[in-house]
Design a protein around this nucleic acid. Structure first.
Length: 275
DNA sequence: TCGATCCTGTAG
DNA sequence: CTACAGGATCGA
């Protein structure tokens, strides 16, 4: 979210989570977890923090992403599922940083380093699942928007059945997995659709534009997220056209960007461009 | 279907 | 000091 200093926090949606996964994958796949330390029990809620101990003594066979979930697949048919929510991060840390203020869970490796779950606001979660449990959870997620399964007709058929505002509809993880508050707003702006329009009332033509906008926004954000994660400080992620720009001129028509409350969240849009 | 809740840093 | 940021979950 933007603040007075012009700095922007990185709210992890699909592109940012994917960047975290790629970076961690290159460093931690094949690693052996020698010890698990839960420094803040709330981070495993509603699971008991002791459950995570089952991860110790196991190898990280693979690291994947599904929606905004990070999956560490472990030897012995178990998996760790991490959700970053707002302020979480999952990173390889050297031993001297493993107990920093905001580190909530540590998966210590044999060489002294560890995978650290950092999360200042403690809203993110780290859960342990059996493979079958995990399968059930992931089955409840919708389609991956950057996969071939995400088609115009898929989006159209789900939109047709939803009587919710299209912005809220786009954030439902059981339809399209991975969109959050920022990219939902950005996609609607590019498709020139008003965020309060009911999903079922969107024309076929607009659904097609929305589909294209989602793919475009996420693809662009993915490139930017990768760059900012591989070269911290040199990139700030993609620039937003509406998100966080209340009162600032629309990049297309110059009208002041407006803010709307939807489902207790801020939605930014241009009242001229988005009808 | 919608509001409250969790949580803490930052802005006012 | 209060208000606010928001993803997912839960209860009305």
């Amino acid at each position: 979210m933007p603040n007075k200093t012009g700095r922007t926090n990185r709210l992890p949606e699909l592109p940012e989570v994917e960047a975290v996964v790629r970076k961690l994958r290159s460093r931690a796949e094949g690693a052996f977890i020698s010890e698990v330390r839960v420094l803040r029990a709330r981070s495993t809620h509603p699971q008991h923090s002791a459950l995570l101990q089952s991860a110790s003594g196991r190898v990280i066979d693979a690291i994947d992403r599904r929606g905004k979930n990070i999956i560490l697949r472990l030897s012995g048919s178990l998996a760790i599922r991490v959700h970053l929510r707002m302020t979480g991060n999952l990173v390889m840390l050297p031993s001297h940083l493993l107990h920093s203020q905001t580190v909530r869970v540590v998966f210590a490796l044999r060489d002294g380093r560890g995978i650290g779950f950092e999360d200042p606001r403690v809203l993110g979660t780290v859960h342990l699942h059996t493979d079958s449990e995990l399968q059930e959870i992931l089955n409840d997620l919708g389609v991956e928007p950057l996969s071939a399964d995400f088609t115009v007709s898929f989006l159209a058929s789900h939109a047709k059945r939803s009587h919710r505002p299209v912005k809220v509809f786009l954030m439902e993880q059981n339809v399209v997995a991975g969109l959050g508050n920022i990219y939902a707003a950005e996609s609607l702006f590019r498709a020139r659709i008003h965020p309060a329009r009911l999903a079922c009332g969107i024309s076929q033509k607009k659904v097609k534009a929305l589909h294209a906008a989602i793919v475009e926004v996420l693809t662009e954000a993915m490139t930017e997220a990768e760059a900012s994660y591989s070269q911290p400080g040199s990139h700030n992620g993609m620039s937003w056209r509406v998100y966080g720009r209340e009162g600032k001129p629309c990049v297309v028509c110059g009208q002041a960007i407006r803010r709307l409350r939807q489902a207790a969240r801020s939605t930014y849009y241009c009242a001229v461009c988005q009808k």
